[in-house]
Protein backbone atom coordinates (compact mmCIF):
# COMPACT_ATOMS: atom_id res chain seq x y z
CA UNK A 1 0.00 0.00 0.00
CA UNK A 2 2.71 2.41 1.04
CA UNK A 3 4.83 1.39 -1.89
CA UNK A 4 1.87 2.01 -4.18
CA UNK A 5 1.30 5.45 -2.75
CA UNK A 6 4.91 6.26 -3.14
CA UNK A 7 4.78 5.15 -6.74
CA UNK A 8 1.75 7.32 -7.49
CA UNK A 9 3.39 10.26 -5.74
CA UNK A 10 6.56 9.81 -7.69
CA UNK A 11 4.64 9.60 -10.95
CA UNK A 12 2.70 12.78 -10.14
CA UNK A 13 5.89 14.57 -9.18
CA UNK A 14 7.45 13.49 -12.43
CA UNK A 15 4.44 14.67 -14.44
CA UNK A 16 4.42 18.10 -12.85
CA UNK A 17 8.16 18.45 -12.99
CA UNK A 18 8.22 17.83 -16.71
CA UNK A 19 5.07 19.83 -17.39
CA UNK A 20 6.40 23.00 -15.79
CA UNK A 21 10.01 22.63 -16.81
CA UNK A 22 9.97 24.20 -20.26
CA UNK A 23 8.28 24.16 -23.61
CA UNK A 24 11.40 23.72 -25.69
CA UNK A 25 10.96 20.74 -27.98
CA UNK A 26 13.89 18.37 -28.47
CA UNK A 27 14.21 19.18 -32.18
CA UNK A 28 14.62 22.87 -31.40
CA UNK A 29 17.61 22.34 -29.13
CA UNK A 30 21.09 23.17 -30.29
CA UNK A 31 23.85 20.58 -30.21
CA UNK A 32 26.26 23.00 -28.58
CA UNK A 33 25.35 22.98 -24.86
CA UNK A 34 26.88 26.44 -24.30
CA UNK A 35 24.82 28.01 -27.09
CA UNK A 36 21.72 26.13 -25.96
CA UNK A 37 22.22 27.45 -22.42
CA UNK A 38 22.49 31.01 -23.74
CA UNK A 39 19.39 30.47 -25.86
CA UNK A 40 17.47 29.24 -22.80
CA UNK A 41 18.56 32.25 -20.81
CA UNK A 42 17.53 34.70 -23.53
CA UNK A 43 14.21 32.91 -24.06
CA UNK A 44 13.41 33.06 -20.35
CA UNK A 45 13.58 36.86 -20.53
CA UNK A 46 11.39 37.26 -23.61
CA UNK A 47 7.65 37.61 -23.27
CA UNK A 48 5.41 35.38 -25.32
CA UNK A 49 3.20 37.73 -27.35
CA UNK A 50 0.34 35.23 -27.30
CA UNK A 51 0.33 34.16 -23.64
CA UNK A 52 1.59 37.42 -22.29
CA UNK A 53 2.48 36.32 -18.79
CA UNK A 54 4.70 33.51 -19.96
CA UNK A 55 8.17 33.67 -21.38
CA UNK A 56 8.74 32.14 -24.79
CA UNK A 57 10.74 29.49 -22.95
CA UNK A 58 7.59 28.44 -21.05
CA UNK A 59 4.96 28.98 -23.71
CA UNK A 60 3.64 26.33 -26.04
CA UNK A 61 2.25 28.92 -28.44
CA UNK A 62 3.36 28.55 -32.05
CA UNK A 63 4.70 32.08 -32.22
CA UNK A 64 6.78 31.41 -29.08
CA UNK A 65 8.24 28.34 -30.74
CA UNK A 66 9.16 30.34 -33.82
CA UNK A 67 10.78 33.00 -31.65
CA UNK A 68 12.78 30.34 -29.79
CA UNK A 69 14.00 28.97 -33.10
CA UNK A 70 14.85 32.49 -34.27
CA UNK A 71 16.87 33.15 -31.11
CA UNK A 72 18.84 29.94 -31.69
CA UNK A 73 19.41 30.66 -35.37
CA UNK A 74 20.83 34.05 -34.55
CA UNK A 75 23.10 32.63 -31.86
CA UNK A 76 24.39 30.01 -34.29
CA UNK A 77 25.08 32.80 -36.80
CA UNK A 78 27.30 34.38 -34.18
CA UNK A 79 25.08 37.09 -32.69
CA UNK A 80 25.78 38.17 -29.13
CA UNK A 81 23.00 37.85 -26.53
CA UNK A 82 22.63 41.60 -26.75
CA UNK A 83 22.19 41.57 -30.53
CA UNK A 84 19.52 38.87 -30.34
CA UNK A 85 17.57 40.80 -27.71
CA UNK A 86 17.97 44.02 -29.67
CA UNK A 87 16.49 42.42 -32.77
CA UNK A 88 13.42 41.09 -30.96
CA UNK A 89 12.94 44.42 -29.16
CA UNK A 90 13.25 46.25 -32.49
CA UNK A 91 10.28 44.19 -33.75
CA UNK A 92 8.06 44.13 -30.65
CA UNK A 93 9.25 46.96 -28.41
CA UNK A 94 10.32 46.90 -24.77
CA UNK A 95 7.06 45.12 -23.94
CA UNK A 96 8.64 41.88 -25.10
CA UNK A 97 11.24 42.07 -22.32
CA UNK A 98 9.93 40.52 -19.10
CA UNK A 99 12.34 42.70 -17.14
CA UNK A 100 11.81 46.31 -18.19
CA UNK A 101 15.00 48.16 -19.19
CA UNK A 102 16.38 51.04 -17.15
CA UNK A 103 15.84 54.25 -19.08
CA UNK A 104 14.24 57.67 -18.51
CA UNK A 105 10.73 56.48 -19.36
CA UNK A 106 10.96 53.65 -16.82
CA UNK A 107 12.65 55.55 -13.98
CA UNK A 108 9.30 56.00 -12.25
CA UNK A 109 8.71 52.25 -12.47
CA UNK A 110 12.12 51.39 -11.02
CA UNK A 111 12.44 54.12 -8.42
CA UNK A 112 8.77 54.83 -7.65
CA UNK A 113 8.54 52.28 -4.81
CA UNK A 114 11.76 53.54 -3.19
CA UNK A 115 10.48 57.09 -3.54
CA UNK A 116 7.20 56.20 -1.83
CA UNK A 117 9.00 54.43 1.04
CA UNK A 118 11.30 57.45 1.44
CA UNK A 119 8.30 59.79 1.55
CA UNK A 120 6.70 57.54 4.18
CA UNK A 121 9.83 57.62 6.35
CA UNK A 122 10.01 61.41 6.03
CA UNK A 123 6.35 61.66 7.02
CA UNK A 124 6.97 59.43 10.06
CA UNK A 125 9.96 61.51 11.13
CA UNK A 126 7.90 64.68 10.76
CA UNK A 127 5.07 63.22 12.83
CA UNK A 128 7.35 61.99 15.62
CA UNK A 129 9.15 65.32 15.75
CA UNK A 130 5.87 67.13 16.02
CA UNK A 131 4.72 64.84 18.83
CA UNK A 132 8.04 65.19 20.65
CA UNK A 133 7.77 68.94 20.45
CA UNK A 134 4.22 68.77 21.78
CA UNK A 135 5.32 66.59 24.72
CA UNK A 136 8.09 69.04 25.61
CA UNK A 137 5.58 71.86 25.37
CA UNK A 138 3.25 70.04 27.78
CA UNK A 139 6.10 69.38 30.21
CA UNK A 140 7.24 72.98 30.13
CA UNK A 141 3.69 74.01 31.00
CA UNK A 142 3.70 71.84 34.13
CA UNK A 143 3.42 74.06 37.19
CA UNK A 144 6.49 74.67 39.31
CA UNK A 145 6.86 72.82 42.59
CA UNK A 146 4.77 74.20 45.44
CA UNK A 147 6.39 76.67 47.73
CA UNK A 148 6.40 75.98 51.51
CA UNK A 149 3.65 78.48 51.91
CA UNK A 150 1.48 76.74 49.37
CA UNK A 151 2.21 73.32 50.89
CA UNK A 152 0.99 74.50 54.27
CA UNK A 153 -2.16 75.93 52.74
CA UNK A 154 -2.79 72.71 50.87
CA UNK A 155 -2.30 70.65 54.01
CA UNK A 156 -4.65 72.91 55.87
CA UNK A 157 -7.28 72.64 53.17
CA UNK A 158 -7.00 68.84 53.09
CA UNK A 159 -7.33 68.68 56.84
CA UNK A 160 -10.40 70.80 56.64
CA UNK A 161 -12.01 68.45 54.13
CA UNK A 162 -11.14 65.43 56.25
CA UNK A 163 -12.75 67.05 59.26
CA UNK A 164 -15.88 67.84 57.30
CA UNK A 165 -16.04 64.24 56.06
CA UNK A 166 -15.51 62.82 59.55
CA UNK A 167 -18.13 65.02 61.10
CA UNK A 168 -20.60 63.93 58.48
CA UNK A 169 -20.75 67.30 56.80
CA UNK A 170 -22.52 67.42 53.52
CA UNK A 171 -20.34 66.89 50.49
Amino acid sequence: MIARRFLIGAMLAWTFATATAFAVEPDEMLDDPVLEERAREISAGLRCLVCQNQSIDDSNAQLAKDLRVLVRERLVEGDSDEQVLDYVVSRYGDFVLLKPPMKPSTYLLWFGPILIVALGILALIAIFRQRGAAMIAVESLAPAALSDDEKNRLAALLDETDTIDKTGGSA
Binding site: V50, L63, D66, L67, L70, V88, R91, G93
Partner: peptide, 13 residues
Protein backbone atom coordinates in the same frame (compact mmCIF):
# COMPACT_ATOMS: atom_id res chain seq x y z
CA UNK B 1 5.32 28.72 -42.17
CA UNK B 2 7.86 29.61 -39.46
CA UNK B 3 6.98 33.27 -38.86
CA UNK B 4 10.06 34.71 -40.56
CA UNK B 5 8.26 37.69 -42.05
CA UNK B 6 5.61 37.75 -39.33
CA UNK B 7 8.25 38.36 -36.65
CA UNK B 8 9.96 40.93 -38.88
CA UNK B 9 6.65 42.82 -38.94
CA UNK B 10 6.13 42.38 -35.20
CA UNK B 11 2.97 40.35 -35.75
CA UNK B 12 1.33 39.08 -32.54
CA UNK B 13 -1.74 37.38 -33.99
Amino acid sequence: PVSKAAIAFGVTG
